[in-house]
């Protein structure tokens, strides 16, 4: 409800192209940054303090985890496993994106396909990834496609729901306008359909990807193919908490970098036409 209200009361548009940042705004930002840093300091301090109270293998100190991360990167098979995971992820997510978009387009345009796929989509959105991981590992054994199929099955639905919304958001009145002027189909797709659907595609990528890399690690762990998942399992079996945490930070770091540096930057370039209303 709230999001719609925001849209309904379309905010006043600033005409000036590059608004000067007012001074109190800058001061506010600096204060915000200060407290943000304080948060990190507090967190790392608390972690170090608690770990000093316990046995080092129960909660290794931040420094120990950092040292472990350096050690892990130095291993012979580190890059082999990273690339195996990236390969699963790249193939699986590309497939999920293509299949999910195709289904989403069909669902957005036809009531029949909407009804046909609706239950599948809903199921894969709500069923725990473990279930898919297990069934895929069972069907495919140690084959490389186990993780890939699991990725497709779990993340296509996140792409689909967003693409469906995007297709339904294609502005009919602009398409009619293009018809009236006899604008050819390819021009129409490039200039109306894609820009209208783009924000939904970004959301689709964002959510699909967030699920995809997690399920990749999970299936690798159960399926014992090469990859990050199997490395985490080894650390677990050796009861090396620092090792598990080290891999976790690699994964989370990778995900955040993809989200912040790659996706957000692309988005900003894509959406320059938007009024800077939600400053």
């Amino acid at each position: 409800m709230a999001t719609q209200d925001v849209e309904a009361t379309a905010p006043a548009v600033r005409i000036d192209s590059e608004p000067e940042e007012p001074r109190p705004e800058r001061a506010r930002r600096q204060r915000y940054l200060l407290w943000r840093i304080a948060g990190y300091v507090l967190f790392i301090g608390a972690w170090a303090f608690i770990s000093s109270l316990t046995e080092p293998y129960i909660l290794p100190s931040p420094v120990a985890v950092l040292r472990k991360m350096v050690e892990v990167v130095g291993r012979d098979d580190f890059w082999v496993n990273i690339f195996a995971t990236l390969r699963h992820l790249a193939i699986g997510f590309t497939l999920a994106f293509v299949i999910g978009s195709a289904i989403g387009i069909a669902m957005g345009r036809s009531a029949y396909w909407d009804a046909f796929f609706r239950d599948y989509v809903m199921l894969t959105l709500t069923t725990p990834g473990l279930v898919f991981a297990l069934v895929c590992v069972m069907i495919f054994g140690l084959l490389d496609i186990g993780p890939i199929v699991a990725i497709v099955l779990t993340s296509f639905a996140h792409v689909t729901v967003n693409v469906v919304e995007g297709v339904r958001a294609i502005p009919r009145e602009l398409m009619d306008m293009a018809t009236a002027y006899g604008v050819p189909r390819s021009t129409r797709i490039r200039n109306i359909v894609l820009p209208a659907v783009a924000p939904f595609l970004f959301t689709a990528i964002r959510y699909g990807f967030a699920i995809a890399w997690k399920i990749t690690a999970l299936t690798e762990l159960f399926g014992q193919t090469d990859g990050v998942g199997i490395q985490i399992r080894v650390e677990f079996l050796f009861f090396d908490i620092a090792g598990v945490l080290a891999w976790a930070f690699f994964l989370v770091g990778f995900a955040l970098v993809m989200e912040r540096l790659v996706l957000q930057r692309l988005e900003r370039r894509f959406f320059r036409w938007r009024p800077k209303a939600f400053a």
Partner: peptide, 21 residues
């Protein structure tokens, strides 16, 4: 300001890791 980033990391952190830990 203090907590926002940790909440985002919390969203991102895989349940698999929490399960193992």
């Amino acid at each position: 300001a203090m907590l926002h980033d940790f909440v985002i990391v919390g969203l991102t952190f895989p349940y698999l890791i929490w399960g193992l830990l």
